[in-house]
């Protein structure tokens, strides 16, 4: 089957950057409108998810199926960065962009944390309670193998989320069972709700940990579109070789908005009217606000 949307969306770097700018505006406007949500991590991971959906993944935004047979699948494990994912999904064509107006409101498909209950296209499992996404993604990856489906599974996890034990159960399993059709990415921003990860509960040497668990470990600059595209393309070449692949993605929480960067304070706080105005002035409206 041809991937029309994929072919149509082989975006070059400047174009990806233009999309990312619009997505950042979407994030800020969503959380501002309901005075709740998580802008910090959403802004930090914007470039990654933009590259993934508009350049790397082979997927069918206009023909969403839960089974996702014959296409690449993405699982968001750190579900609190939902305003980012919703913007990406809408801009990619999974649902109308205008629906971003309903984020976190009553009777919306755009729940505070991603869910399948209301039938929002693009989402295959609920996330929010942390640490569960890697296990689900591995099940989907093994399901693909049973179906002789050569497409890949992508995931995103917070670094603070790695404090959850289930992540390491899943990490051990993936290597032991040679689940080599998965590329997991860690948002390595060094921040969590209570402060720097180093102070809350140090993750130690993450690269050594993943290597010891039997994963192929890559590093990536998560707010540099060229680094992202190059690394993700490179990561694909490591799949199918008997080892799962993880990318430690260095990002800046709040990336793209100067006063939101370099602090954990914008993890779960929405900007007020003045702050929104100031933030939007730093981000070009490239495609058009919803």
């Amino acid at each position: 089957m041809r991937f029309e949307s994929y072919l149509r969306s082989m975006k070059d770097i400047p174009e990806l950057q233009r999309i990312a700018s619009q997505v950042r505006r979407d994030i800020l406007r969503q959380v501002h409108a309901v005075n709740s949500g998580h802008p910090g991590g959403s802004l930090g991971c914007t470039d990654f998810l933009t590259a993934l959906y508009f350049r790397i993944m082979q997927h069918r935004p206009n023909h969403f199926t839960m089974d996702g047979k014959g296409e690449d699948l993405f699982f968001l494990s750190n579900g609190h960065i939902s305003p980012l994912w919703y913007s990406i999904l809408a801009r990619a064509g999974y649902f109308p962009v205008a629906e971003l107006n309903t984020f976190r409101k009553l009777n919306s498909r755009l729940q505070g944390h991603p869910a399948t209950e209301e039938g929002l296209p693009g989402i295959r499992v609920a996330s929010g309670s942390l640490g569960q996404g890697l296990s689900v993604a591995l099940g989907a990856a093994q399901s693909k193998k049973l179906n002789n489906d050569p497409q890949l599974i992508y995931t995103l996890h917070g670094d603070g989320e790695l404090q959850e034990g289930q992540i390491w159960e899943a990490a051990m399993y993936a290597a032991a069972k040679k689940v080599d059709n998965i590329i997991a990415t860690i948002d390595f921003n060094g921040q969590q709700i209570d402060g720097p990860t180093e102070n809350v509960l140090s993750l130690g040497n993450l690269e050594a940990k993943w290597q010891a668990f039997g994963w192929e470990v890559l590093r990536m600059q998560g707010n540099d579109m060229t680094s992202i595209v190059t690394t993700l393309e490179n990561a694909k070449t490591y799949t199918g070789k008997g080892k799962p692949v993880v990318i430690l993605m260095k990002t800046e929480m709040g990336a793209g908005v100067d006063f939101m960067m370099g602090t954990h304070k914008w993890h779960g706080v929405a900007p007020n009217d003045e702050q929104l105005k100031q933030a939007l002035s730093q981000l070009e409206e490239t495609i058009g606000d919803y």
Binding site: L73, G131, S135, A137, L138, A140, E169, M172, Y173, A176
Partner: peptide, 22 residues
Amino acid sequence: FQVGIAEANMIGLAAGFTIGGK
């Protein structure tokens, strides 16, 4: 699929297996 003594992972894996029709 023998998952070892890791029940949380087992439940997550099971949820994932349904994606693809298992």
